[in-house]
Design a protein around this nucleic acid. Structure first.
Lengths: 226, 226
DNA sequence: GCAAATTAATGATTTATTCAAG
DNA sequence: CTTGAATAAATCATTAATTTGC
Protein backbone atom coordinates (compact mmCIF):
# COMPACT_ATOMS: atom_id res chain seq x y z
CA UNK A 1 0.00 0.00 0.00
CA UNK A 2 0.89 3.55 0.19
CA UNK A 3 2.08 3.16 -3.35
CA UNK A 4 2.31 6.53 -4.99
CA UNK A 5 2.61 9.11 -2.39
CA UNK A 6 4.43 12.26 -3.05
CA UNK A 7 5.89 13.76 0.08
CA UNK A 8 3.37 16.45 -0.46
CA UNK A 9 5.35 19.43 0.30
CA UNK A 10 2.99 21.28 2.50
CA UNK A 11 3.81 24.87 1.99
CA UNK A 12 4.22 27.10 4.93
CA UNK A 13 1.30 27.05 7.26
CA UNK A 14 -1.37 24.44 7.79
CA UNK A 15 -1.97 22.86 4.46
CA UNK A 16 -3.47 19.47 4.88
CA UNK A 17 -5.16 18.86 8.14
CA UNK A 18 -6.42 15.55 7.00
CA UNK A 19 -7.51 14.15 10.26
CA UNK A 20 -7.65 15.18 13.81
CA UNK A 21 -4.95 13.83 16.03
CA UNK A 22 -6.06 14.21 19.59
CA UNK A 23 -3.62 15.53 22.11
CA UNK A 24 -2.77 13.27 25.00
CA UNK A 25 -4.74 15.48 27.32
CA UNK A 26 -7.72 15.28 25.08
CA UNK A 27 -7.48 11.54 24.96
CA UNK A 28 -7.34 11.44 28.68
CA UNK A 29 -10.46 13.50 29.00
CA UNK A 30 -12.36 11.48 26.47
CA UNK A 31 -11.22 8.26 27.98
CA UNK A 32 -12.25 9.38 31.39
CA UNK A 33 -15.65 10.43 30.32
CA UNK A 34 -16.13 7.20 28.50
CA UNK A 35 -15.03 5.20 31.47
CA UNK A 36 -17.22 7.20 33.72
CA UNK A 37 -20.12 5.62 31.97
CA UNK A 38 -21.07 8.14 29.40
CA UNK A 39 -20.35 6.06 26.36
CA UNK A 40 -22.73 7.77 24.04
CA UNK A 41 -23.16 11.41 24.90
CA UNK A 42 -26.12 13.21 23.39
CA UNK A 43 -25.52 16.16 21.22
CA UNK A 44 -25.53 18.82 23.86
CA UNK A 45 -23.09 16.86 25.94
CA UNK A 46 -20.93 16.39 22.93
CA UNK A 47 -20.78 20.09 22.47
CA UNK A 48 -19.87 20.51 26.07
CA UNK A 49 -17.12 17.99 25.82
CA UNK A 50 -15.82 19.59 22.69
CA UNK A 51 -15.58 22.92 24.42
CA UNK A 52 -13.67 21.28 27.13
CA UNK A 53 -11.29 19.62 24.76
CA UNK A 54 -10.72 22.82 22.92
CA UNK A 55 -8.60 23.97 25.78
CA UNK A 56 -5.96 21.66 24.48
CA UNK A 57 -6.28 22.00 20.77
CA UNK A 58 -8.62 22.53 17.91
CA UNK A 59 -11.38 20.01 17.73
CA UNK A 60 -14.86 19.86 16.34
CA UNK A 61 -18.07 18.36 17.55
CA UNK A 62 -17.86 15.75 14.88
CA UNK A 63 -14.47 14.64 16.09
CA UNK A 64 -15.89 14.04 19.50
CA UNK A 65 -18.82 12.25 18.08
CA UNK A 66 -16.61 10.04 15.99
CA UNK A 67 -14.35 9.35 18.85
CA UNK A 68 -17.13 8.02 20.97
CA UNK A 69 -18.57 6.05 18.16
CA UNK A 70 -15.29 4.38 17.42
CA UNK A 71 -14.55 3.88 21.04
CA UNK A 72 -17.82 2.13 21.61
CA UNK A 73 -17.51 0.03 18.52
CA UNK A 74 -14.00 -1.08 19.19
CA UNK A 75 -14.54 -1.67 22.81
CA UNK A 76 -17.43 -3.88 21.97
CA UNK A 77 -15.48 -5.71 19.34
CA UNK A 78 -12.61 -6.38 21.67
CA UNK A 79 -15.04 -7.67 24.20
CA UNK A 80 -16.67 -9.91 21.70
CA UNK A 81 -13.35 -11.19 20.57
CA UNK A 82 -12.31 -11.96 24.09
CA UNK A 83 -15.55 -13.62 24.75
CA UNK A 84 -15.33 -15.76 21.69
CA UNK A 85 -11.82 -16.65 22.61
CA UNK A 86 -12.84 -17.56 26.10
CA UNK A 87 -15.70 -19.57 24.81
CA UNK A 88 -13.52 -21.35 22.34
CA UNK A 89 -11.02 -22.08 25.06
CA UNK A 90 -13.79 -23.29 27.29
CA UNK A 91 -15.13 -25.47 24.56
CA UNK A 92 -11.73 -26.86 23.89
CA UNK A 93 -11.17 -27.48 27.56
CA UNK A 94 -14.55 -29.09 27.87
CA UNK A 95 -13.91 -31.25 24.89
CA UNK A 96 -10.62 -32.32 26.28
CA UNK A 97 -11.59 -32.66 29.91
CA UNK A 98 -14.25 -35.27 29.86
CA UNK A 99 -14.68 -37.65 27.02
CA UNK A 100 -18.29 -36.73 26.71
CA UNK A 101 -20.87 -34.46 28.25
CA UNK A 102 -18.99 -31.93 30.30
CA UNK A 103 -20.59 -28.83 28.90
CA UNK A 104 -19.44 -25.31 29.66
CA UNK A 105 -17.65 -25.40 32.99
CA UNK A 106 -17.77 -21.65 33.40
CA UNK A 107 -14.26 -21.63 32.08
CA UNK A 108 -11.44 -19.58 33.44
CA UNK A 109 -13.35 -17.69 36.06
CA UNK A 110 -11.09 -14.69 36.16
CA UNK A 111 -12.34 -13.46 32.85
CA UNK A 112 -15.48 -11.54 32.36
CA UNK A 113 -18.60 -13.62 32.64
CA UNK A 114 -18.83 -15.48 29.40
CA UNK A 115 -22.24 -14.37 28.38
CA UNK A 116 -23.48 -11.91 30.91
CA UNK A 117 -22.69 -8.79 28.98
CA UNK A 118 -25.73 -6.67 29.15
CA UNK A 119 -23.52 -4.32 27.26
CA UNK A 120 -24.68 -0.81 26.95
CA UNK A 121 -28.30 -1.42 26.18
CA UNK A 122 -28.61 1.37 23.77
CA UNK A 123 -32.33 1.43 23.58
CA UNK A 124 -32.87 3.81 26.44
CA UNK A 125 -34.51 7.15 26.17
CA UNK A 126 -34.05 10.24 28.22
CA UNK A 127 -35.07 13.79 28.36
CA UNK A 128 -33.82 14.26 24.86
CA UNK A 129 -34.60 17.93 24.74
CA UNK A 130 -33.24 18.48 21.29
CA UNK A 131 -36.27 19.26 19.23
CA UNK A 132 -35.98 19.03 15.52
CA UNK A 133 -32.80 17.36 14.58
CA UNK A 134 -29.75 19.39 14.06
CA UNK A 135 -27.09 16.78 14.20
CA UNK A 136 -27.07 13.05 13.66
CA UNK A 137 -25.78 11.79 16.95
CA UNK A 138 -28.14 11.65 19.83
CA UNK A 139 -29.47 9.21 22.34
CA UNK A 140 -27.91 8.29 25.60
CA UNK A 141 -25.53 5.62 26.70
CA UNK A 142 -27.39 4.17 29.54
CA UNK A 143 -25.54 1.42 31.17
CA UNK A 144 -25.78 -0.57 34.31
CA UNK A 145 -22.22 -1.17 35.20
CA UNK A 146 -18.75 -0.44 34.08
CA UNK A 147 -17.24 -3.65 33.00
CA UNK A 148 -13.86 -2.54 34.16
CA UNK A 149 -12.71 -6.00 33.22
CA UNK A 150 -9.36 -6.55 31.66
CA UNK A 151 -6.74 -3.89 31.42
CA UNK A 152 -8.44 -2.62 28.38
CA UNK A 153 -10.16 0.45 29.53
CA UNK A 154 -8.64 3.09 31.66
CA UNK A 155 -5.06 2.14 31.39
CA UNK A 156 -4.96 1.79 27.71
CA UNK A 157 -4.10 5.43 27.60
CA UNK A 158 -0.87 5.08 29.41
CA UNK A 159 0.72 4.02 26.21
CA UNK A 160 -0.69 6.91 24.38
CA UNK A 161 0.48 9.55 26.71
CA UNK A 162 3.67 10.98 25.48
CA UNK A 163 4.65 12.01 28.92
CA UNK A 164 7.68 11.14 30.91
CA UNK A 165 10.11 10.18 28.30
CA UNK A 166 12.13 7.10 28.78
CA UNK A 167 14.40 7.22 31.79
CA UNK A 168 12.91 9.64 34.16
CA UNK A 169 14.70 12.74 33.01
CA UNK A 170 13.12 15.08 35.42
CA UNK A 171 13.04 17.84 32.92
CA UNK A 172 10.64 20.48 34.02
CA UNK A 173 10.21 21.37 30.42
CA UNK A 174 6.51 21.64 30.68
CA UNK A 175 6.84 24.36 33.20
CA UNK A 176 3.43 25.58 34.14
CA UNK A 177 1.63 22.78 32.53
CA UNK A 178 -0.45 22.24 35.57
CA UNK A 179 -4.05 22.17 34.67
CA UNK A 180 -7.20 21.56 36.49
CA UNK A 181 -10.77 21.54 35.57
CA UNK A 182 -14.09 20.30 36.39
CA UNK A 183 -16.58 18.56 34.30
CA UNK A 184 -20.09 18.03 35.44
CA UNK A 185 -23.01 16.67 33.64
CA UNK A 186 -26.43 18.15 33.63
CA UNK A 187 -28.69 16.73 36.30
CA UNK A 188 -30.91 15.89 33.44
CA UNK A 189 -28.67 13.02 32.63
CA UNK A 190 -29.18 9.77 34.35
CA UNK A 191 -26.53 10.22 36.90
CA UNK A 192 -24.64 13.22 37.85
CA UNK A 193 -21.00 12.70 37.86
CA UNK A 194 -18.02 14.83 38.14
CA UNK A 195 -14.58 14.43 36.93
CA UNK A 196 -11.62 16.18 38.23
CA UNK A 197 -8.46 16.00 36.29
CA UNK A 198 -5.20 17.17 37.48
CA UNK A 199 -1.90 17.04 35.79
CA UNK A 200 1.34 16.83 37.60
CA UNK A 201 4.33 17.66 35.55
CA UNK A 202 6.38 14.62 34.97
CA UNK A 203 4.12 11.90 33.90
CA UNK A 204 2.27 11.28 37.08
CA UNK A 205 -1.34 11.89 36.71
CA UNK A 206 -4.22 11.68 38.98
CA UNK A 207 -7.73 11.08 37.98
CA UNK A 208 -10.60 11.21 40.32
CA UNK A 209 -13.99 10.17 39.26
CA UNK A 210 -17.04 10.60 41.34
CA UNK A 211 -20.19 8.86 40.31
CA UNK A 212 -23.56 8.64 42.01
CA UNK A 213 -23.07 4.96 42.36
CA UNK A 214 -20.04 5.72 44.33
CA UNK A 215 -17.64 4.46 41.79
CA UNK A 216 -14.20 5.77 42.12
CA UNK A 217 -11.16 5.26 40.08
CA UNK A 218 -7.73 6.40 40.86
CA UNK A 219 -4.87 5.90 38.58
CA UNK A 220 -1.49 7.05 39.60
CA UNK A 221 2.04 6.84 38.46
CA UNK A 222 1.90 6.31 34.81
CA UNK A 223 5.26 5.51 33.48
CA UNK A 224 5.80 4.50 29.97
CA UNK A 225 8.46 2.01 29.34
CA UNK A 226 9.79 1.71 25.86
CA UNK B 1 -28.57 -10.41 18.73
CA UNK B 2 -30.65 -7.76 20.18
CA UNK B 3 -32.14 -10.46 22.27
CA UNK B 4 -33.37 -9.02 25.50
CA UNK B 5 -34.79 -5.63 25.10
CA UNK B 6 -37.46 -4.42 27.34
CA UNK B 7 -39.73 -1.81 25.88
CA UNK B 8 -38.14 0.41 28.40
CA UNK B 9 -40.89 2.63 29.41
CA UNK B 10 -39.20 5.92 29.35
CA UNK B 11 -40.60 7.83 32.24
CA UNK B 12 -42.72 10.89 31.84
CA UNK B 13 -41.43 14.09 30.39
CA UNK B 14 -40.93 12.76 26.94
CA UNK B 15 -42.06 15.90 25.17
CA UNK B 16 -42.54 15.21 21.54
CA UNK B 17 -40.58 12.86 19.48
CA UNK B 18 -42.01 14.39 16.40
CA UNK B 19 -40.23 13.79 13.21
CA UNK B 20 -39.77 15.85 10.17
CA UNK B 21 -42.35 15.35 7.51
CA UNK B 22 -40.99 16.69 4.30
CA UNK B 23 -43.29 18.78 2.20
CA UNK B 24 -44.03 17.54 -1.29
CA UNK B 25 -41.92 20.27 -2.72
CA UNK B 26 -39.06 19.27 -0.51
CA UNK B 27 -39.39 15.68 -1.52
CA UNK B 28 -39.34 16.71 -5.11
CA UNK B 29 -36.19 18.66 -4.65
CA UNK B 30 -34.48 15.90 -2.80
CA UNK B 31 -35.61 13.30 -5.22
CA UNK B 32 -34.41 15.36 -8.11
CA UNK B 33 -31.04 15.92 -6.63
CA UNK B 34 -30.73 12.28 -5.86
CA UNK B 35 -31.73 11.31 -9.33
CA UNK B 36 -29.40 13.84 -10.78
CA UNK B 37 -26.62 11.68 -9.55
CA UNK B 38 -25.73 13.26 -6.29
CA UNK B 39 -26.68 10.39 -4.10
CA UNK B 40 -24.39 11.27 -1.29
CA UNK B 41 -23.84 14.98 -0.98
CA UNK B 42 -20.88 16.17 1.07
CA UNK B 43 -21.50 18.36 4.01
CA UNK B 44 -21.34 21.68 2.31
CA UNK B 45 -23.74 20.52 -0.30
CA UNK B 46 -26.01 19.22 2.37
CA UNK B 47 -26.10 22.62 3.92
CA UNK B 48 -26.86 24.15 0.61
CA UNK B 49 -29.66 21.75 -0.01
CA UNK B 50 -31.05 22.37 3.40
CA UNK B 51 -31.16 26.07 2.77
CA UNK B 52 -32.95 25.40 -0.40
CA UNK B 53 -35.48 23.18 1.29
CA UNK B 54 -36.07 25.72 3.96
CA UNK B 55 -38.01 27.75 1.50
CA UNK B 56 -40.77 25.23 1.93
CA UNK B 57 -40.62 24.44 5.57
CA UNK B 58 -38.40 24.02 8.56
CA UNK B 59 -35.70 21.45 8.09
CA UNK B 60 -32.29 20.75 9.52
CA UNK B 61 -29.06 19.58 8.02
CA UNK B 62 -29.47 16.28 9.77
CA UNK B 63 -32.82 15.73 8.16
CA UNK B 64 -31.26 16.12 4.77
CA UNK B 65 -28.43 13.86 5.72
CA UNK B 66 -30.78 11.19 6.95
CA UNK B 67 -32.94 11.50 3.93
CA UNK B 68 -30.11 10.77 1.57
CA UNK B 69 -28.86 8.00 3.72
CA UNK B 70 -32.21 6.30 3.80
CA UNK B 71 -32.81 6.94 0.17
CA UNK B 72 -29.58 5.31 -0.77
CA UNK B 73 -30.07 2.40 1.53
CA UNK B 74 -33.60 1.68 0.46
CA UNK B 75 -32.96 2.17 -3.15
CA UNK B 76 -30.19 -0.31 -2.96
CA UNK B 77 -32.25 -2.74 -1.01
CA UNK B 78 -35.04 -2.58 -3.49
CA UNK B 79 -32.58 -3.12 -6.25
CA UNK B 80 -31.11 -6.08 -4.50
CA UNK B 81 -34.49 -7.51 -3.88
CA UNK B 82 -35.41 -7.16 -7.48
CA UNK B 83 -32.18 -8.66 -8.54
CA UNK B 84 -32.55 -11.60 -6.24
CA UNK B 85 -36.02 -12.07 -7.46
CA UNK B 86 -34.91 -11.98 -11.03
CA UNK B 87 -32.09 -14.34 -10.29
CA UNK B 88 -34.36 -16.72 -8.50
CA UNK B 89 -36.77 -16.54 -11.35
CA UNK B 90 -33.98 -17.15 -13.79
CA UNK B 91 -32.77 -20.09 -11.77
CA UNK B 92 -36.24 -21.45 -11.57
CA UNK B 93 -36.69 -20.93 -15.24
CA UNK B 94 -33.41 -22.63 -15.97
CA UNK B 95 -34.30 -25.53 -13.74
CA UNK B 96 -37.69 -25.88 -15.27
CA UNK B 97 -36.65 -25.16 -18.79
CA UNK B 98 -35.24 -28.54 -19.61
CA UNK B 99 -38.48 -30.30 -19.03
CA UNK B 100 -41.24 -27.93 -19.66
CA UNK B 101 -40.46 -24.46 -18.44
CA UNK B 102 -43.50 -22.29 -18.10
CA UNK B 103 -42.30 -20.07 -15.30
CA UNK B 104 -41.85 -16.34 -15.63
CA UNK B 105 -40.00 -16.07 -18.91
CA UNK B 106 -38.03 -12.99 -18.11
CA UNK B 107 -41.37 -11.33 -18.18
CA UNK B 108 -41.23 -7.84 -19.47
CA UNK B 109 -37.56 -7.92 -20.34
CA UNK B 110 -37.61 -4.26 -19.55
CA UNK B 111 -36.07 -4.87 -16.18
CA UNK B 112 -32.61 -3.76 -15.26
CA UNK B 113 -29.73 -5.93 -16.35
CA UNK B 114 -29.43 -8.66 -13.83
CA UNK B 115 -25.88 -8.14 -12.75
CA UNK B 116 -24.41 -5.15 -14.45
CA UNK B 117 -24.75 -2.61 -11.70
CA UNK B 118 -21.37 -1.24 -10.89
CA UNK B 119 -23.26 0.64 -8.26
CA UNK B 120 -21.89 3.84 -6.99
CA UNK B 121 -18.26 2.94 -6.65
CA UNK B 122 -17.75 4.87 -3.52
CA UNK B 123 -14.08 4.32 -3.13
CA UNK B 124 -12.95 7.30 -5.13
CA UNK B 125 -10.80 10.06 -3.80
CA UNK B 126 -11.01 13.69 -4.63
CA UNK B 127 -9.70 17.00 -3.63
CA UNK B 128 -11.24 16.66 -0.24
CA UNK B 129 -10.94 20.29 0.63
CA UNK B 130 -13.00 20.14 3.77
CA UNK B 131 -10.68 21.04 6.56
CA UNK B 132 -11.21 19.88 10.08
CA UNK B 133 -14.44 18.05 10.44
CA UNK B 134 -17.47 19.77 11.70
CA UNK B 135 -20.16 17.30 10.88
CA UNK B 136 -20.22 13.58 10.29
CA UNK B 137 -21.49 13.36 6.75
CA UNK B 138 -19.01 14.14 4.09
CA UNK B 139 -17.44 12.59 1.07
CA UNK B 140 -18.78 12.78 -2.39
CA UNK B 141 -21.15 10.65 -4.30
CA UNK B 142 -19.12 10.10 -7.37
CA UNK B 143 -20.74 7.89 -9.84
CA UNK B 144 -20.29 7.05 -13.42
CA UNK B 145 -23.79 6.61 -14.59
CA UNK B 146 -27.33 6.82 -13.49
CA UNK B 147 -28.76 3.39 -13.55
CA UNK B 148 -32.11 4.76 -14.45
CA UNK B 149 -33.25 1.19 -14.62
CA UNK B 150 -36.60 0.14 -13.36
CA UNK B 151 -39.30 2.57 -12.56
CA UNK B 152 -37.92 2.83 -9.11
CA UNK B 153 -36.10 6.05 -9.11
CA UNK B 154 -37.47 9.18 -10.53
CA UNK B 155 -41.05 8.25 -10.61
CA UNK B 156 -41.21 6.95 -7.15
CA UNK B 157 -42.09 10.42 -6.10
CA UNK B 158 -45.28 10.49 -7.95
CA UNK B 159 -46.85 8.54 -5.17
CA UNK B 160 -45.45 10.85 -2.57
CA UNK B 161 -46.61 14.02 -4.08
CA UNK B 162 -49.89 15.08 -2.75
CA UNK B 163 -50.59 17.04 -5.85
CA UNK B 164 -53.22 16.74 -8.45
CA UNK B 165 -55.93 14.81 -6.80
CA UNK B 166 -57.57 12.09 -8.79
CA UNK B 167 -58.77 13.18 -12.16
CA UNK B 168 -57.43 15.96 -14.25
CA UNK B 169 -59.41 18.61 -12.48
CA UNK B 170 -58.06 21.69 -14.05
CA UNK B 171 -58.63 23.58 -10.84
CA UNK B 172 -56.41 26.59 -10.50
CA UNK B 173 -56.70 26.22 -6.78
CA UNK B 174 -53.06 26.78 -6.03
CA UNK B 175 -53.21 30.16 -7.56
CA UNK B 176 -49.81 31.74 -7.36
CA UNK B 177 -48.04 28.63 -6.36
CA UNK B 178 -45.64 28.96 -9.18
CA UNK B 179 -42.12 28.61 -8.00
CA UNK B 180 -38.85 28.57 -9.69
CA UNK B 181 -35.34 28.32 -8.58
CA UNK B 182 -31.97 27.32 -9.52
CA UNK B 183 -29.61 24.98 -7.89
CA UNK B 184 -26.03 24.78 -8.85
CA UNK B 185 -23.17 22.93 -7.37
CA UNK B 186 -19.85 24.41 -6.58
CA UNK B 187 -17.31 23.92 -9.32
CA UNK B 188 -15.25 22.35 -6.64
CA UNK B 189 -17.38 19.30 -6.91
CA UNK B 190 -16.60 16.70 -9.47
CA UNK B 191 -19.23 17.65 -11.88
CA UNK B 192 -21.08 20.80 -12.15
CA UNK B 193 -24.72 20.35 -12.59
CA UNK B 194 -27.71 22.47 -12.45
CA UNK B 195 -31.21 21.74 -11.61
CA UNK B 196 -34.08 23.82 -12.60
CA UNK B 197 -37.33 23.14 -10.95
CA UNK B 198 -40.54 24.58 -11.98
CA UNK B 199 -43.93 23.98 -10.59
CA UNK B 200 -46.98 24.30 -12.68
CA UNK B 201 -50.16 24.52 -10.78
CA UNK B 202 -52.16 21.40 -11.18
CA UNK B 203 -49.87 18.51 -10.62
CA UNK B 204 -47.90 18.74 -13.75
CA UNK B 205 -44.32 19.27 -13.00
CA UNK B 206 -41.34 19.70 -15.09
CA UNK B 207 -37.89 18.81 -14.05
CA UNK B 208 -34.88 19.58 -16.05
CA UNK B 209 -31.59 18.20 -15.09
CA UNK B 210 -28.37 19.10 -16.69
CA UNK B 211 -25.35 17.00 -15.98
CA UNK B 212 -21.81 17.27 -17.25
CA UNK B 213 -22.20 13.99 -18.98
CA UNK B 214 -25.03 15.48 -20.83
CA UNK B 215 -27.62 13.33 -19.21
CA UNK B 216 -31.03 14.75 -19.26
CA UNK B 217 -34.16 13.64 -17.64
CA UNK B 218 -37.54 15.00 -18.19
CA UNK B 219 -40.48 13.87 -16.28
CA UNK B 220 -43.85 15.27 -16.90
CA UNK B 221 -47.39 14.66 -15.86
CA UNK B 222 -47.24 13.27 -12.44
CA UNK B 223 -50.50 11.98 -11.22
CA UNK B 224 -50.83 10.20 -7.99
CA UNK B 225 -53.33 7.49 -7.65
CA UNK B 226 -54.08 6.10 -4.28
C1' DG C 1 21.29 7.66 13.40
C1' DC C 2 18.20 8.09 9.38
C1' DA C 3 14.80 7.41 6.24
C1' DA C 4 12.25 4.12 3.38
C1' DA C 5 9.17 0.11 4.06
C1' DT C 6 5.78 -2.35 7.14
C1' DT C 7 2.69 -2.77 10.51
C1' DA C 8 -0.53 -1.26 14.04
C1' DA C 9 -3.96 2.32 15.64
C1' DT C 10 -7.47 4.94 14.93
C1' DG C 11 -10.03 8.95 12.72
C1' DA C 12 -13.61 9.33 9.16
C1' DT C 13 -17.26 7.19 5.84
C1' DT C 14 -20.42 4.19 4.32
C1' DT C 15 -23.70 0.47 4.83
C1' DA C 16 -26.90 -2.45 7.21
C1' DT C 17 -30.22 -2.87 10.81
C1' DT C 18 -33.41 -1.38 13.99
C1' DC C 19 -36.91 1.44 16.25
C1' DA C 20 -40.84 4.07 16.14
C1' DA C 21 -43.91 8.04 14.25
C1' DG C 22 -47.64 8.73 11.04
C1' DC D 1 -46.67 -0.25 5.59
C1' DT D 2 -43.81 3.55 4.60
C1' DT D 3 -40.09 6.21 6.15
C1' DG D 4 -37.56 9.51 9.38
C1' DA D 5 -34.23 8.80 13.06
C1' DA D 6 -30.54 6.51 15.36
C1' DT D 7 -26.92 3.39 15.98
C1' DA D 8 -23.88 -0.53 15.25
C1' DA D 9 -20.88 -2.95 12.04
C1' DA D 10 -17.84 -2.85 8.30
C1' DT D 11 -14.72 -0.41 5.65
C1' DC D 12 -11.61 3.04 4.02
C1' DA D 13 -7.64 6.04 4.66
C1' DT D 14 -4.18 8.39 7.17
C1' DT D 15 -1.23 8.88 10.87
C1' DA D 16 1.97 7.00 14.53
C1' DA D 17 4.97 3.18 15.72
C1' DT D 18 7.91 -0.24 14.40
C1' DT D 19 11.17 -2.62 11.84
C1' DT D 20 14.87 -2.88 8.48
C1' DG D 21 18.89 -1.86 5.62
C1' DC D 22 22.34 1.25 5.08
Amino acid sequence: MEGGLSPERHAAAEPVRSRWTPKPEQILILESIFNSGMVNPPKDETVRIRKLLERFGAVGDANVFYWFQNRRSRSRRRQRQLQAQAQAAAAAAAAGSSSSSGSPPTSGAALAPASSMGMFAHGAAYGSSSASASWPPSSAGMMGDLDCGGGDDLFAISRQMGYADGGGSGSAAMSSQQQQFYYSCQPEFRYTYTILFRWILDGVLLVTLGAPVGRRIIAGGINNHR
